[in-house]
Design a protein around this nucleic acid. Structure first.
Lengths: 209, 209, 209, 209
DNA sequence: CATGAATGAGAGTTCATTCAT
DNA sequence: AATGAATGAACTCTCATTCAT
């Protein structure tokens, strides 16, 4: 009666996509399995068939996202020929990914405010992998006497925090702009301008002169 | 049967305090009114007697926090005698508040990833009030030719984001340290060191030389 | 602090009046003690001080109403000089009471559909007292060969049912009229016309010719 | 653990039947969803699965009843060959339905005393449909000079009111009889006798002589 | 693969009622 | 006489999860 046999892979992907969207928009708790099933035009039980349970689905969503962003950053940084370049590329490619997938920053921030309550291991590993990319850049830059010594973890969070908050607060900032023209909330800044500003800030500050 | 204390103020405060703790540890959705009632050693219905409903309680919790941090920052900056000093004080006092009330960063971050889904107006107003403090510092510094032009919103988020993430990820970072000694997650950095590093970064980068 | 010592009797009356109103508008279950306290501008606990509990208050409200309608009917029928007159007066005075106190029909109907779940005895006694008034009229009329034999209980319910339903459905009937002009729901019939019609119907039918 | 029957139709019907019973016995507010679930030997959540919410269930119950009584009356009146016959059939079939489904009168009376607070539209439409049946009979009778002019709405309520109250007060009247043999509450009158008496009363009174 | 039917555990909220003052 | 504080028991409704088909 219903449209069955619709290709397993495709169905699974559809579920993942909708889950990603809903989780990011509403958070883990506020998103129900029913929501996801309806959005995906799929029976609720099927979600359990594919993903064991809600938290399993969430994990799979998050892994996907982390893998993707890692790929993006790593790939982009291949064609670099200086550590400073590498930092720039790190920031730009993270920024561009964040803007292209605006659910990601929300999910990441939420996860970090929970100290990773929902997904212990995988999240953890992926985060560290990303951080060690930056950490490594900074270390090499220091060895090459291009950058001063810095606290990599804090640099990382200034970059990630700055970019993520710019993405997640976009609607808030637009609203603020409409209410009070005097305060500039950067409501229609472009990604690249933000990324550039962050990069320049870091370079300026860290560079050995 | 239970102890009826008949001290309204005290009781209400006890509820607010426990709510603050639980909301920050577990998030809004994952914290039940029962949790709060039990933690406060109070009948659940009493919470509704004082706060109308869960979201009303949450609002009151958040208002309190925002008011407090605003006070802290404003008071501390009174004794400054230069704009650069003001920036330093802004960062340090925010940092010290965040470390003293570690639930605050978690709540703030979560709220910002939701675009303020849980509390429309009040949150909004308080956030802007805090931001305009920093925005004003930067503007005056620029007028005095002490700082270059900068994007205030991004500066704000780099500071706030950096600090908040350092607070909320503390347990995660400690765990990471134990697993892999090679990656330095700044697991036992002190508040003041972090604040100082952020301040220096910003000053270095923005200062007119 | 608050306006106390406001005369006990007066306060009690105010509570009774508001209770009567609310119970009739919303029914027993849907009316909360808080509703009544607020409407009466009185502390909730005071209601328990005066009336033991919700159902006690309800009982007192109902007794008052039944006593009043009984008085009304009995008094009016004193000046009659024929049984037919007495029937007429019974119907008219009941009708006028019902229109003057439109909460009464609603309460009565509700009570009767419950088989008197809320107030066992008193309600019961009062109802019977009223019925025996009519029953007696019909019996005497029959003895005097003025009326044929009839089933008093059914006559009673046709009168009471007809009048009460006309009162309680007034808003419904007005609404119906606006939607469909073709069906005449007697939306703006006057009390007296309804009473007259009922009286005439009964007289016509029962009279010995 | 419990028996899962997997027969949707049957289960749904069981719920509706028990709901009908309980709502009529106890009224809307006093009947809990738990009551209905227990009586139906069904998990509470299932009720929400089928009926959205309590008031949705109530609506469905009431629609069913109104449809049924309308059918009954309409079908019975097909074989009539005079308007007077039609009136008789109207009264008898309503009476027989009311006696066979004694929850109906209670529900109807309660609904009418509320001015339809619980179910806006459907109730309304169904009531009017029933009334227009009688209204039409009276109109045609008048045109044929068989009946005098009358106020259809009041006639309707005298009939409906009389019958319904006879049904709902049955237990009360039995109790009264036991307490006082002198007052005849028609405690063991038969349906048909009541219906006949009402019909005769109306005919006698309305007929053109 | 896919679905509708069914469940258990709890969450938020309300309310009659009582107690201390 | 009157009040604010506090409670326990219910009640409606939701949701992750499972089962039978």
């Amino acid at each position: 009666m219903a449209k069955q046999k619709r290709n397993a892979q495709e169905t699974k992907l559809k579920i993942l996509t909708n889950a990603k969207l809903l989780f990011s928009k509403q958070g883990y708790d506020a998103t129900t399995v029913d929501d996801i099933a309806n959005a995906s035009d799929v029976n609720k039980a099927l979600i359990y068939y594919y993903f064991k349970n809600k938290s399993g689905l969430y994990s799979e969503v998050m892994s996907g996202l982390f893998d993707a962003i890692y790929e993006e950053v790593v790939n982009s940084s291949k064609k670099c020929n200086s550590v400073v370049d590498e930092l720039e590329v790190f920031i730009y490619s993270y920024a561009s990914y964040a803007y292209k997938h605006p659910y990601f920053p929300a999910l990441l921030l939420r996860e970090l405010s929970d100290s990773g309550a929902h997904l212990p291991e995988m999240m953890f590993v992926s985060m560290r992998r990303l951080f060690s990319l930056l950490s490594d850049i900074l270390k090499r830059a220091e060895e090459q006497k291009v950058f001063k010594h810095s606290i990599a973890m804090v640099v990382h969070f200034m970059i990630i925090g700055g970019l993520n908050l710019m993405v997640t607060t976009k609607p808030l900032r637009v609203k603020a702009m409409k209410m009070d023209k005097d305060i500039d909330t950067c409501a229609d800044c472009l990604v690249d301008d933000v990324a550039e500003f962050i990069f320049e800030t870091m370079k300026n500050s860290l560079e050995v002169r």
